[in-house]
Write a protein that binds this DNA or RNA. Sequence first.
DNA 1: CAAGACTATATCGTGCGCGATAAAAAAGAT
DNA 2: ATCTTTTTTATCGCGCACGATATAGTCTTG
Lengths: 143, 143
Amino acid sequence: MQNDDLLRLENQLCFPLYAASRLVTRLYQPLLEAHGLTYPQYIVLLILWEQDGLTVSDIGDKAMLSSNTLTPLLKRMQTAELLERARSEFDERKVIIKLTDKGQALKSEVACIPLQLLENSRIDIEKAKQLKSLLDELIGKLA
Amino acid sequence: MQNDDLLRLENQLCFPLYAASRLVTRLYQPLLEAHGLTYPQYIVLLILWEQDGLTVSDIGDKAMLSSNTLTPLLKRMQTAELLERARSEFDERKVIIKLTDKGQALKSEVACIPLQLLENSRIDIEKAKQLKSLLDELIGKLA
DNA sequence: CAAGACTATATCGTGCGCGATAAAAAAGAT
DNA sequence: ATCTTTTTTATCGCGCACGATATAGTCTTG
């Protein structure tokens, strides 16, 4: 493949990744907005629903985000009364994030969303699994 | 699969997409920054190197972006003297984007980047192709 | 040709992402 | 014990993304 071909948009792996990610976010957006959530906030909730009481950097490790993104995001979620932020009493550097009742309760409200999106979009479930496993592998190599 | 499992981060297709897209952007970022480019600006250049003289919405169709994102971005690229923005003389609503010599010249400078990234990351070329085709299919269904 | 509909771009506001840096607490070193 | 290093969170600035809206040019239709 010549350099010229390597620079064609259609031959880039980066662009479909970028485009697909934004398209999927757009798919979630109206459903999440109904619950006052943004997409990254939903990611944080997915993490906290699995394990509550994590520190900011614990969440950061899982979401691949750091404090410059997470601190303001978590503050907004605190303002929305979805979670509480409190310094650890054992290590004052750490901030422990705990879901409020409202944050916990949201779980059952949005539980239907993944399935709903899967059904509404005509996505082949086998191809989705294949895609996910290729993405996980890519992430493993880049993270 | 139960609702609870459907909400586990590890079972979401959306998250690896979001994470992989950001990881790949981070891979490009230092190489692009050396040429004063951001990742979305690079995407716009890829488009214009293929076909110059497009309108804002032509570029938007290809990049899946609209004027609220593109107008400021193109203005920054104009300030960087990579391109010129001029109203069409036939239809004054349209803005024609033309690369400057500097914008054209950048093509040969960044031509090595895709291959360089492919080689530096230990990405299997066959899996990359497979991934791209699955992403293209997904985009086709969602766009 | 005037009024309304439509199209193309621009503007505005909000929320990310993230590099760079700061500040404070904890851990380690001498 | 003091000094240095590391860890953890927060702050700042900039550039996207994008919904909502504005503005101006073009087209359509009576």
